[in-house]
Computed example of a mutant assay.
Amino acid sequence: MLSDQLARARARGAVFSTLRRTAPWGLGFTGRRPLTAHILLDGTGWLTTAGDEPVRLAAGDVVLATAGEPYRLVSEIGADVETITDARRRGSDDGPGPGSRIVCGAYVVEGSVGRSLLESLPRFARIPASAQNPRHRDAIGLLAAEAGAHGSGQQVLLDRLLDLNLVYALRSWGQWDGHRAPGWYRALAHPRLAQVIQAVHERPAHRWTLETMADAAAMSRAGFAATFKEVIGQSPGAYLTEFRMGHAEDALLRTDATLASVAGSVGYGNEFAFATAFHRTHGLPPGRWRAAHRRATDHEPVDDHAP
């Protein structure tokens, strides 16, 4: 299920910063980006936001920050802060003294499945170095080295390395902070629900009903429906509709497939039934929704200086 989520939520033209700072230091972020990865390569620091308790950061910690109010990364509470825009223009501090290196990568998330992933995350998800496996730490080292280098194809490589870091970070976060993980992730610990969710993700066009889903789980309909709602937080029907609409959105935005083709690919027997369900969810028929969102995407500005 995590693979299915990430297949439609990838880095594209990501904005990277690799900065060395000598204490005291502070970096301020707007919080406008949908998802930003911060990695404290060495040294220590704090994550601070207005009205919340500061969070201590150690060397190697990863923080995934979703959109919200402005926030800061600082060496110590009360340290002066410069905006990330000014920090990137100024570059790294090369002077003597104990220093910290901070990698920041802004993630451009596309598609409704990507939004679903973001909605499942807390405002800040901290993955301590102690919760990372050795391959994740190796990937972080490679990301840091490449972010400070220059070469052909660098942007594509950075995008993919940020993807890799996100996969590792989400996997570690779900295991380390499982009580806050999304319902579909918690379902992985329930073998019968996991096999149903996997089947739905692999075959969205199948004629799924409560009965066929319960049969796939080898459970009674009542027992399956109750367990599904308790673990995932949605009824099976609501989950199925949301998942299918997410796939439909992505097909409408990323391909030129006909509405009839999109309808069939997400389990609707005809274009009318699909259009009715889509309109109920989105407030627009799929054709008009596609046209409106493609225009919005074509004209969407990207602020390269606002991780």
Rank of each mutant, 00 (worst) to 15 (best):
Y185V: 15
R186G: 13
L188W: 06
H190F: 11
P191R: 01
L193F: 05
A194R: 10
A194E: 09
Q195I: 07
Q195E: 11
V196Y: 01
A199P: 03
V200A: 04
H201R: 01
E202L: 12
R203G: 02
R203I: 01
P204F: 13
A205L: 06
W208F: 08
T209Q: 02
T209E: 02
L210N: 07
L210K: 07
L210A: 07
E211M: 08
E211C: 02
A214V: 01
A214S: 03
A218R: 03
M219C: 06
M219F: 06
G223A: 07
A226I: 04
F228G: 07
F228H: 07
F228K: 04
K229Q: 06
K229F: 05
E230V: 01
V231C: 05
G233F: 11
S235R: 10
S235Q: 11
S235G: 15
G237K: 12
G237P: 14
Y239W: 13
L240D: 10
T241G: 12
E242G: 00
E242A: 03
F243M: 07
F243W: 08
G246L: 11
H247V: 13
D250I: 07
D250E: 14
D250M: 09
A251E: 14
L252C: 15
L253Y: 03
L253I: 05
R254P: 02
R254K: 10
R254V: 08
D256S: 13
T258C: 07
A260F: 03
S261T: 10
S261I: 03
S261Q: 08
V262E: 06
G264M: 04
V266D: 10
V266P: 07
G267H: 09
G269R: 11
G269A: 12
N270R: 13
E271S: 10
E271D: 10
F272P: 04
F272V: 11
A273P: 13
A273Q: 15
F274C: 14
A277Q: 14
A277R: 15
F278A: 06
F278H: 06
F278M: 03
R280M: 08
L284V: 09
P286D: 05
